[in-house]
Every structure is written in structure tokens, then in C-alpha cells.
Amino acid sequence: MTIYKSEAGAALLRRRYLDALQAWPVPREDVRVPTPEGETFVLVSGPAGAPALVLLHGSGSNSAEWAARMPALAGRFRVYAVDVIGEPGLSAEARPPLDSDRYARWLDAVLDHFGVEQAAFLTSSFGGWLALDFAIRRPGRVAALALRCPVGLGPMKKGFVVKAVLLALLGEKGRRKSVAGAVGEPESSPIVAQQLLVSANYRYRTGPFPVFGDAALERLSMPVYAVAGADDAMVDSATTKRRLEAAGAVVDLVPGAGHYLPGEADLEFLTRRAANGDFTG
């Protein structure tokens, strides 16, 4: 089954994405990488000799979500913004089982294509799950993890799911209210409008994300920094903080913030790690 609800919806989302890429704020190279899971679209920016940084966006999104951050990131790193497979970007629609090693092998292929032996990862939401899975399975290839509102460290909040279903019964108004509550943004926010457009045309993954066990998290030998919204409606951020800190990570909770986090608190962490020579690509 296609990840889109209709061919017209797929064309609309792709067109919107291509329009967004027209405003990419730094020079870039668009690369289509062959992988075991199909072709993967990667935007490459920054100096060729700079430390390697891989960006993994969240579910229902694509690499356009990183555009505002690119001037700062590309000034310090060789940035590989990867369109995650099975998401509404320009990569293949494949969705391997989350309890397999196929996502790790997919990322192996992406890094190998660029000759990157080791990289730091900056991620958002589901991208954090992917990076954690990769770091647990391939610790030698991950120099540092910077996670923004990662999933997979505790169960999703049941109350949010029930409320979302009830609000959906109220039509467009209810869906807008539900999305605004999920991302922690005003109903008038362009972020809410974009997510409504995506949800109208794209099939999100069903079922919960697997939760990483304590033994798996203990294999995270690289520096880890996470930031999450204290008022995240979807994810139990307190559990995220507790479990990551037990594994040696540094975790900040942002008061009053939801699942969408503005700011660049993770940039200092990544810059410090690079300055210490923790990763070179």
C-alpha cells in the first residue's frame, strides 16, 4: 500500500516540498543514494572537510524542517539532511519492520555512499528513534547523538490518543485543535497548517514505536544530549529524561514547551564535541 491517500495528495505534498527547497538558505548538492530499501534523497551542505553531521527528521515530515537551522549548521559541519524512507519526502516509500535491523542497514548504505565512517546525528522525534536504534546496533559509527523530543523511551501518552480521536469527530475544527495540542503550537501556526495538510494526504505509521530496553540503552557509548518539551502532549518527557540520564546522557526539559521545540540548544553540544575532536567524519 502506498503511504499516500491518493495520487493527487502525493503530488501536492511533493510539490510543496520542492517549493520549500527553492528557499534552502545555503548552497547544497542533491544526491539520490541507492540503498537496500530503495533510493534515498539526501541534501548535502557545508564544507567538505568539516565534521560529518546527519539530520533525521520526524514522522510526517521531510528535510525541509531543517531549513531555518542550515546557516548555523552548515557553517560548522558537513551536513547530510536525509529524507527518511517511508515519509513524505523524496525517498522510497519503504517501511521496514521497526523490530528488525533493516533501518540500520539502510543508514549504513547512506553513510557508505558518502564515505563517512562515523558521524554525529541531530534528530527530531521519530528521527531520534532511528538514531537510537542505529547507535545501539552500530555504536562505532555514531560519534554523538543530539535528540529533540525522541520517541522510543517510554509509552506514548494514552490520554493524547483518546483526546485526538474525540476531537477528530468534530471535523476540521477538531483536527486543527488536536494537531495544535500535539505540537504545542497555536492553532494559527503555519506548523499546524502544514501538519493538517500532511495528515489529509499521507498515511501515518500505525501502532506504537518499540521502546528501547535498559540493556540496549547501556550500549550507548557515545556522548548523548537530549532536549524535550516538559508539556509534550504525546510523549512522557519525564520518562525520557529519567531513562536517558540513567544511560549517561544529558537531558534538558523546556518548561511550557510541547513536541515542537524552537531554539538551538543542541548546537552548543555538537560544536563542543567537534571541537574536542570526538568526530571528524
Rank of each mutant, 00 (worst) to 15 (best):
A74M: 04
A74S: 12
G75S: 14
G75Q: 04
R76P: 03
R76W: 00
R76G: 01
R76H: 11
R76S: 12
R76A: 15
F77H: 01
F77R: 03
F77Y: 08
F77D: 02
F77I: 05
F77C: 03
R78N: 09
R78Q: 12
R78K: 13
R78D: 05
V79T: 06
V79G: 06
V79F: 07
V79L: 06
Y80G: 09
Y80D: 06
Y80N: 08
Y80L: 08
A81E: 01
A81V: 00
A81P: 09
A81N: 04
A81G: 07
V82F: 08
V82C: 09
V82L: 15
V82K: 13
V82R: 12
D83K: 09
D83F: 02
V84A: 11
V84N: 12
V84G: 03
V84Q: 13
V84F: 06
I85D: 04
I85R: 11
I85V: 12
I85Y: 01
G86Y: 09
G86H: 13
G86N: 10
G86L: 06
G86R: 11
E87G: 03
E87I: 02
E87T: 05
E87L: 05
E87P: 11
E87H: 10
E87V: 08
E87R: 10
E87Q: 14
E87A: 10
P88G: 01
P88S: 04
P88F: 00
P88D: 00
P88L: 00
G89E: 03
G89Q: 14
G89D: 09
G89F: 02
G89V: 02
L90D: 10
L90I: 09
L90C: 15
L90G: 03
L90Y: 05
L90S: 07
S91A: 03
S91T: 03
S91H: 11
S91W: 01
A92P: 05
A92N: 03
A92M: 00
A92D: 09
E93D: 11
E93T: 06
E93C: 01
E93A: 08
E93H: 06
E93L: 05
E93M: 01
E93F: 00
A94H: 11
A94Y: 14
A94T: 08
A94S: 07
A94N: 09
A94R: 11
A94D: 15
A94W: 13
A94C: 15
R95Q: 08
R95M: 05
R95T: 13
P96N: 01
P96Y: 01
P96I: 00
P96T: 00
P96Q: 00
P96H: 00
P97T: 07
P97H: 02
P97F: 06
P97C: 00
P97N: 03
P97R: 14
P97A: 07
L98R: 15
L98A: 09
L98I: 13
L98F: 13
L98D: 07
L98S: 13
L98N: 07
L98G: 06
L98E: 08
D99G: 06
D99H: 14
S100N: 13
S100L: 07
D101W: 11
D101Q: 06
D101V: 14
D101P: 13
D101Y: 07
D101M: 15
D101T: 09
R102K: 13
R102F: 02
R102Q: 15
R102D: 12
R102P: 10
R102G: 04
R102T: 02
Y103P: 03
Y103D: 07
Y103G: 01
Y103S: 08
Y103V: 08
A104R: 14
A104Y: 07
A104I: 13
A104G: 12
A104K: 14
